[in-house]
Amino acid sequence: AEDTGVRVELAEEDDGKKASIALKLWVEDHKKLKGKYKETGAIEFTFDLEKDVPEVVSQEMVESGFFHESDAKIVGKSIRDRVALIKWRRERTASSIV
């Protein structure tokens, strides 16, 4: 994968059942963060696998003052990639049980 300087990980163990899951976004390149959040490295949030849209969440982060508008796309993509992986793992687990 391309290095975006933004990593998204699970902030909790995925039990495979809950639609809503805690994710943690790590910012390796602090220049991406705005103003008072420059010293921040991690942003934890809850993501609903059924209802939430990664790009909407990244836009909310921009509106909350964490990121520059120009980075919304990178952040959204990082969340999208992680969410896709979580969903893929869940599907694989579900099919192995069957």
Partner: peptide
């Protein structure tokens, strides 16, 4: 604590915290 909580108008809660030095050196 350096941890802060930001709530977006849409209702989503963001918990922000600094990354420990050790964590950054991992990559």
């Amino acid at each position: 604590s350096a941890t802060a909580q930001v709530v977006h108008s849409a209702g989503r809660k963001f918990i922000v915290s600094p990354v420990p030095e050790s964590r950054l050196k991992e990559h």
